[in-house]
Simulated assay, not measured.
Amino acid sequence: MRIARTPRPAAVAPPEWVSGAAWVDEIAEPEGLSRFRVDSVHFAPGARTAWHRHPFGQVLHVTEGTGLVQCRGEGVHAIRAGDTVRIAPGEWHWHGASPTTFMTHLAIQEVAEDGTEAERGAPVTDAEYCADPLNA
């Protein structure tokens, strides 16, 4: 067992992955035989990821605020504190905060043996993002 007691400083999410302001706190990284990564991601209002997919899928668990998530070919869905979203392996999707609130979620995914965590696609357009079920 290993207990991490010294919190690492939050990292600013890379702009090629996120539109708007977001910060990532690494909770657990792949180590030894484990290939799981867990991050706590804090999105400012209006911030969202680019379209992306994970080789083994992803689980998102919202810990605070209200956000949005969309899988390609589906509508935009509101997510709130306590909600858990399971995204299938290889499924293109995006997620982020609602236009007016912060949102924090845990992002849990398995990393491929070659180190691949995700494949990034195009940024989410304003038209895609504005298909917001909270304002419909």
Score class of each variant (00 low, 15 high):
residue 9 P to T: 08
residue 128 E to M: 00
residue 26 E to G: 09
residue 95 H to P: 01
residue 115 G to F: 07
residue 99 P to L: 13
residue 90 G to V: 01
residue 3 I to D: 09
residue 125 T to A: 11
residue 115 G to P: 01
residue 72 R to M: 10
residue 115 G to R: 01
residue 36 F to S: 07
residue 63 T to V: 13
residue 5 R to D: 08
residue 41 V to N: 09
residue 53 R to N: 07
residue 87 I to H: 01
residue 11 A to R: 05
residue 59 V to T: 14
residue 53 R to M: 06
residue 97 A to N: 03
residue 112 A to W: 07
residue 26 E to W: 10
residue 80 R to A: 12
residue 99 P to Y: 12
residue 34 S to Y: 04
residue 34 S to H: 07
residue 114 D to A: 07
residue 107 A to Y: 11
residue 134 L to Q: 08
residue 132 D to V: 03
residue 115 G to T: 06
residue 41 V to I: 15
residue 66 T to C: 12
residue 84 T to G: 13
residue 32 G to Y: 13
residue 112 A to Y: 06
residue 62 V to S: 04
residue 90 G to A: 02
residue 107 A to V: 14
residue 23 W to Y: 14
residue 2 R to M: 13
residue 50 A to P: 12
residue 67 G to L: 00
residue 131 A to E: 07
residue 14 P to M: 08
residue 134 L to P: 04
residue 67 G to V: 07
residue 53 R to H: 09
residue 32 G to K: 14
residue 52 H to M: 13
residue 132 D to Y: 02
residue 17 W to I: 09
residue 58 Q to N: 14
residue 71 C to E: 15
residue 49 T to Q: 00
residue 115 G to L: 09
residue 31 E to W: 11
residue 38 V to D: 02
residue 87 I to T: 04
residue 113 E to K: 11
residue 13 A to K: 00
residue 87 I to P: 03
residue 6 T to V: 05
residue 44 A to R: 03
residue 118 A to R: 11
residue 106 L to M: 08
residue 27 I to H: 00
residue 26 E to K: 13
residue 38 V to T: 10
residue 50 A to M: 05
residue 33 L to Y: 11
residue 53 R to Y: 08
residue 128 E to I: 01
residue 12 V to M: 12
residue 7 P to F: 03
residue 77 H to I: 11
residue 102 F to C: 10
residue 66 T to N: 07
residue 73 G to I: 12
residue 40 S to R: 15
residue 13 A to H: 01
residue 61 H to P: 06
residue 91 E to D: 04
residue 40 S to N: 14
residue 20 G to M: 03
residue 27 I to M: 07
residue 104 T to V: 12
residue 54 H to I: 02
residue 40 S to T: 09
residue 114 D to Y: 08
residue 17 W to C: 10
residue 33 L to A: 11
residue 41 V to A: 10
residue 31 E to T: 12
residue 101 T to M: 12
residue 49 T to E: 00
residue 71 C to K: 15
residue 26 E to I: 05
residue 123 P to G: 03
residue 13 A to C: 06
residue 110 E to W: 02
residue 42 H to D: 13
residue 96 G to P: 01
residue 21 A to Q: 08
residue 37 R to E: 02
residue 129 Y to H: 00
residue 43 F to S: 10
residue 48 R to V: 03
residue 41 V to S: 10
residue 49 T to I: 05
residue 15 P to D: 12
residue 125 T to G: 02
residue 79 I to G: 00
residue 58 Q to H: 11
residue 56 F to T: 00
residue 134 L to F: 07
residue 86 R to A: 13
residue 37 R to P: 07
residue 39 D to L: 15
residue 61 H to A: 15
residue 19 S to F: 13
residue 27 I to A: 06
residue 28 A to E: 14
residue 97 A to W: 01
residue 133 P to I: 04
residue 23 W to D: 08
residue 52 H to D: 08
residue 60 L to P: 05
residue 88 A to Y: 04
residue 77 H to K: 15
residue 3 I to G: 12
residue 96 G to I: 02
residue 113 E to Y: 09
residue 22 A to C: 09
residue 81 A to W: 06
residue 122 A to P: 00
residue 15 P to E: 10
residue 8 R to P: 04
residue 91 E to T: 05
residue 115 G to I: 06
residue 120 R to M: 07
residue 117 E to C: 01
residue 119 E to A: 05
residue 38 V to M: 13
residue 1 M to R: 10
residue 44 A to P: 02
residue 63 T to I: 15
residue 101 T to Y: 08
residue 39 D to Y: 13
residue 33 L to N: 09
residue 102 F to H: 14
residue 89 P to T: 09
residue 50 A to K: 05
residue 107 A to C: 12
